[in-house]
Amino acid sequence: MSGVGKKRTSLKTLKIAIIFLFLLSPAMTLHLRPNDYTGGRTRDENDRMLRNRSAVATILGEIRSSMSDIMFYKTELYLHSGVAYKLNLDYEALSSKGQVVDLGKPTANLKASQVSHETATAKAPEHGHENEPELPKGEEEIFHCEGADTVIPRQINDFRGFIGDLQREVKPWIDPSKPHLHTDGTELLPWYRLMTLSDPHYIRGYMIGAWWLKRQRKNTQLEAAVNFLKEGISNNPEAFQLYLMRGEIMHTLGQNQEAKRSFKEAAELAVKQRPAGGKISKQWTEYNEEDALASMRLAVFSEREFGSKKEALALARRYLNVLEHDAILENLIKRLEQK
């Protein structure tokens, strides 16, 4: 074969090899996910609140660097019926306990200035077996006692004159000194759905979305919450808070064995992830510690109620060993030992 012929043949062989490699490439590329990681500053609730409450964020309006951040801002708007408030909700409290809690004046250390408000109906649900009281029929909005700062200032604080007046007339706006309104959360649900679609590792998105679904109180919504959490768990199998929430909703639905299993899974994961002594840090916040405590207690309670008392006692001792001190588990162990 001549030199040119040999060159053509080897080029042809090379092309075939490359095409073959390309056809087989999905075997590798489907597993190539460099942006598939958990954690990170974008998802940190403390960081989110700090950046969303900064002057830069106010100037940028809805522009953010990630879709989930943009949608997060949208949920704030929808929660307040379109009125733009300077971000003031404690989303860790909302995701952990379902409490709509307003924060005080923004500071670098957010925990120092937390102010909680009672809802018009009753206290929001704590971890446990309390039933939520029914909202009076037709009452779709929850009123809060004090207002919070709006992005559009009040007339007395506004140097812009008639332009400011025009903006207050045209844009959704409530005088911040008056009580502000929260909607019932139905309109937020699509945003949490989109938030978790754009970022499947945004655990708080799943938790808060599930809380809002749970607030609707109907069985169909509760089942939707369970499916939503199931998706969250499949994308984040190490997120113990999702198992905890799932257990609570299963209990509300009356599926106690499933609830017991969820609580136990949550507790086991919490034990694995909890730092020694429950040391609070950026990675392990106070809410993580509370959720971990709740998981362990509920795992023991549900085992005692719907399983075996012997197993419940063994679990209680094991978790107490991890926690070193917990009055509730200590009391429970005493009672179980007496029996």
Partner: peptide
């Protein structure tokens, strides 16, 4: 710049 989170943004 208020805080590191804003600088990060």
């Amino acid at each position: 710049i208020d805080n590191a989170a804003t600088a990060n943004l």
